Computed example of a mutant assay.
Amino acid sequence: MDTENRPVLTGLVALVGVAVAIGLLGGLAVLVGVKATGIGGSAESSDEPSTSATFRLPRPSETSTETAPEQATEPSPGTEPTSEAPAEGISLSAAQQSVSPMQQIGLTGTYQAGEGSVLQVQRMEDGAWADFPVTMSVSGGTFATYVLTGRTGPNKFRVVDTDSEVVSNEVTVTVG
């Protein structure tokens, strides 16, 4: 092949060769850097805690289905009994009582019996509950989200468990 008569082809071949060499050296440098810093870790799981940023699920363990019998306790003299929401109910609260149109309305609450449940936010519209385009999950017995609305005046919200149809209390937030 006569390279003197084809300088463009010679330059193109040289350019591709340099690009391949730089790519290989760059990849090797990244590989060495990853190994040196310990990023990525191994694909094997271990019981020991690790400082790598990988997601690991806990290993399943056997749980006992037996429960200890509950013992009734009477309040000590001079104390008032406290009324608490039932453990299986959904308790909802709003962070704000009044907001401007399209300002965030924080909705938080507890649902002890609903771990992993998906909750649908609903708003009272024309005398009936309508789904609001917001859902959230229950984690650790609690949930939190926010909604935005431009509908002025009192807005009533509640949440409903999409599986069991358990509903929360209503909260009212005035927009405007």
Rank of each mutant, 00 (worst) to 15 (best):
M1D: 05
D2Q: 05
T3K: 11
N5E: 07
P7M: 07
L9C: 12
L9I: 13
T10R: 04
T10L: 02
L12I: 11
V13L: 13
V13G: 15
L15A: 15
L15F: 15
L15Q: 15
L15Y: 14
V18N: 01
V20N: 06
I22M: 06
G23L: 01
L24G: 14
L25Y: 07
G27V: 03
A29D: 05
A29L: 07
L31Q: 12
V32T: 05
K35V: 14
K35H: 10
K35P: 02
G40W: 08
G40P: 01
G41S: 04
E44H: 05
E44Q: 07
S45G: 10
S46N: 09
S52G: 04
R56F: 08
P60I: 09
P60S: 10
S61C: 02
E62W: 03
S64D: 13
E66C: 02
T67Y: 14
T67H: 13
P69V: 04
E70T: 15
T73H: 01
E74T: 15
P77K: 01
T79P: 00
E80Q: 11
E80V: 10
T82C: 01
S83K: 06
E84Q: 09
A85H: 13
A87W: 14
E88I: 01
G89K: 13
I90L: 14
S91N: 13
L92H: 11
L92Y: 13
L92K: 11
S93D: 10
A94F: 02
A94T: 00
S98D: 09
V99E: 06
V99C: 04
Q103E: 15
G106T: 11
G106V: 05
T108Y: 13
T108R: 15
Y111H: 04
Q112M: 08
S117V: 08
L119A: 05
L119N: 05
L119D: 06
Q122R: 14
M124S: 03
D126V: 05
G127V: 03
W129L: 02
P133G: 13
V134P: 00
M136L: 15
M136F: 10
S137H: 12
S139Q: 12
G141H: 03
T142W: 00
T142N: 07
A144V: 09
A144T: 14
T145G: 07
T145S: 09
T152S: 10
T152R: 10
T152Y: 08
N155V: 01
K156Y: 15
K156C: 05
D161F: 04
T162M: 07
D163N: 02
V167I: 06
S168R: 00
N169T: 04
T172D: 04
V173Q: 11
V173R: 10
T174Y: 10
V175K: 03
